[in-house]
Structure formats: C-alpha cells, structure tokens
Amino acid sequence: MNDALNYVNTEGLKFFGKVNASISHELKNILAIISETAGFLNDLTELAKQGKELKLSLLENCSTSIVEEIQRGFTTIKQMNRFSHSVDVPVTDIDLVETLDLMAGLSGFLSSAANVSIENKCTESKTIRTCPFLLQNFIYQILCFVYESTGPTGEIRIHLLEEKEKGVLLTLFSSAQMSVEKFPDEKMKKTAGILGIEFKTNHSFYEINLLIPYAVETITQLDPNG
C-alpha cells in the first residue's frame, strides 16, 4: 500500500464519518419537525372534539410543513446516496460542478455553514479525471475553512473558469475576511498534492484560487487497476 493510498484510507474514513454524522443530524431534525407537526395536528383534533373552533389555515400550514420536510428528507437521502457511491471506484471521470454542488449541500448541514452559490463560467461541462472521494474531502475542507470566517450568515461564491489545457480555475469569494495565514494547512496541502491541485499564490483575505487539473499522473497510484 503506497503513502497516498494510506492517506486516503485514514483521512477518508474520518471524513466519511464526519459527513455521515452531519447527515444523521439533519435527518433527525427533519423527523423532529414532522413528529411535532403530527403531534400538533393531534392536539388540534383533540381541541376540535372538545368543541373548539378549528382553523383551516392551521391545518393547511401543518400539511405544507410536513410535505416540505419530506422533500427536504428526500433531498438529503439523495445526497447521502451520491456521497456513498463516490467510493465505488478509486479513480474516475467526474463533473466538477456536480461535485461542488454535492459538497455545498453536505457541508450545508454544519451549523457554521454559510450560503454557497456556484457560478460556472466554463464554456462546456468539463470532466475531471480524479479520485472523486478525495476531491470531495478536499472541497469539504476548503468550505469548512471558509465557513470559519463567514459563519452561518455569510456568503461564498464559487467561480469556475477554464484555464487553457491545464484544468479548471476555481475561485472562492468569501463575504468575510479569512485568516489566510492559516491557509493552506498541512492536511489541505497533502490532499492537494495527491490530487495535483495547485494553490494559486494570489489568494487574499476574501479570495482563494485553486487550479484543478483535468487529469494528473499521480492519481493512478490510487487505482489498483491503474
């Protein structure tokens, strides 16, 4: 087992656990809302039985809330399923926008998460040959780093632009000043190194620039079928 593979396994397991914990927390919140709303409907029914006036608008609000929470649950389970399947193959072609969207969604369950929007300026959908699970881990780390500064009320804009034949230039704009002296940390550097991701030096208090290559030789180390 080579170093990179060892790193993916140990760090990956931690990442997998963290994401799963946040998903289960989200699902519990959804169930708590559904459970309380159903309970409230029971309370209203009991009051109606006692001859109290039953407001139809309350019933309507309850049913709307239940439908919305079920939809939220479906979206969460869909994201969980996509995330779980990211370990199916060690190296494959992925759509970068889809991966960013998934990580924005999954990291959004964290209480510190800011609002993330993705702006794709690439002329066509660009596929990246990479280790999908490790790339997800990397994006999640970066988003968590930015959340530390923005907090839940902040905004992050992710901007994608083609950079000739090299890859996709990813820029994260933060609404709050980041502590760039802590960026990138050792873990980010190591993950980026395996994925061939380059940290552009022009990052600032409000902006992080990363070059994600279309493909990288070293990634084959992670694929036993190479």
């Binding site: 919140n29 809302i33 309380e36 409230f40 309370d43 009051l47």
Partner: peptide, 16 residues
C-alpha cells in the same frame, strides 16, 4: 433552537 420550523411548532404545542 436554530431549526425555525421545529421551534415554531413546538412553541405552538406548548402554548396549548
């Protein structure tokens, strides 16, 4: 609670 919908519903129930 930061989960606004949960907070609202449980508040309504407790008021009853």
């Amino acid at each position: 609670d930061d989960e606004v919908k949960f907070l609202h519903t449980i508040t309504e129930r407790l008021k009853l």
